[in-house]
Computed example of a mutant assay.
Amino acid sequence: MQKIQGAPEAIVVAIESKNRTWDLTPTVNQDPRGPVGQGGGADGFLNFIEKELISYIDDNYRTHDFKMISGGSIGGLFVLHAMQSQPFLFDAHFAYSPAVWWADRTTAKRVKKFLTNNKTYKSYLYMNMGNESGEMREVYEDLLSFMKSNQPEGMRFVNQAFPDVPHGLTSAAGQFNAYHNLFFPIEMPTIKVTNGVQSIIEYYAKVSHQRGKIIAPPEMVVNRIAYEFFQRRELETAVALFKYNLKTYPNHTYAYGGLADVYQSMNKREEAHSLIKSALTLLKPGDEAYEYYKNMDAELADDNKDKATF
């Protein structure tokens, strides 16, 4: 994903636990279907991650402020516990087959309370479930239903079901979609443009946050999106997008040409001609598209001359 710019570079930190049940569960279990009397160390473990581990990674590696946490089974339980108890420690949470039945469904109840009390929560959550049955699935399905009905504004939530995948493999089964749905590709899909130029500005702000550096909307991407609106005859949006592209890339000839195409279709030939002449000042004979713009310049000059004569 990183090689095709579908995701930024990432550092994966795997933590080996000497007592997984203690570290990953927030409460002591009294349910006879699980290890009775065990668990309860999750808050201490999360404190270690926040105060010691993250600081160590930041001090010793090339990082920026975008963090994800991932876990399966009681690791998934820990991920949900982290989300509701330290909601801004991580930007994204991956909970594979989370064991939310643990200890009288305590974490599931806390997650419900968190969602009820927070109408806005800008984060990302991926959850999935395999072929698990019984209490494991029952509690998960109940929590899933609640999440779908009480999803805070700004929270991106992705859920998947794998009916034929066993419990131990749901992390492997879900990883691609977990990351694919999290990261905004540098090439913005047209479907994401719901509010013209503002959509593009907001989209690339998110891309920049995920990558830890300013990512400007690429000229060719905005050009492509603008032409798609032009082809759909949504001319007002197309003009706004082409103008934004031209303002952002005043030295790119295609930014002039795109806006000229729209103006020409709207019979604003003088405006189109002015743009083409500006584009030609950036080109010289032999450059790519020089002849195309030269011919368009002559065509518009003739049209405007005939118009003046008439």
Rank of each mutant, 00 (worst) to 15 (best):
Q86Y: 09
E141A: 05
L235S: 05
G286M: 01
S199F: 13
G286Q: 04
K294M: 03
T21M: 15
S171M: 13
I200E: 10
A10S: 11
W101C: 04
M266W: 06
P285F: 00
Y290C: 00
A161I: 13
N304S: 07
Q5V: 03
P163Y: 01
T63I: 10
L89R: 10
V239A: 03
M127A: 09
I57R: 00
A260C: 11
I54C: 04
G134P: 11
H273G: 10
G6L: 04
M296R: 04
R110A: 15
L80C: 03
A260T: 15
Y263I: 10
G196N: 05
Y203Q: 01
K268G: 08
N195K: 03
F242C: 07
T107Q: 05
D59S: 14
K247M: 09
K3S: 13
V197S: 07
E228F: 12
A260S: 10
G37Q: 05
F90M: 01
T63W: 04
N159P: 08
V79E: 07
V139W: 02
L169T: 08
Y244M: 12
V207L: 13
L235V: 06
T116W: 04
P152I: 11
E9P: 03
G34C: 08
I214N: 15
Q231N: 14
E219D: 14
A95R: 00
Y126R: 08
N267E: 15
K192Y: 14
T190W: 15
A260Y: 12
P87C: 13
K119V: 14
L241P: 07
E50C: 07
F66Q: 04
G44Q: 10
S97R: 00
A260F: 12
R137D: 15
Y244D: 13
W101D: 15
Y204S: 02
A308S: 09
D142H: 02
I214D: 15
S265E: 11
G130N: 01
Y124W: 02
A240L: 03
M155P: 01
M147R: 02
K277N: 13
D306I: 05
V207M: 14
L125G: 02
T120G: 11
E141F: 03
T25A: 01
K148H: 07
F146Y: 11
P26L: 01
T116S: 08
F48I: 03
S274R: 02
Y293G: 00
T309H: 12
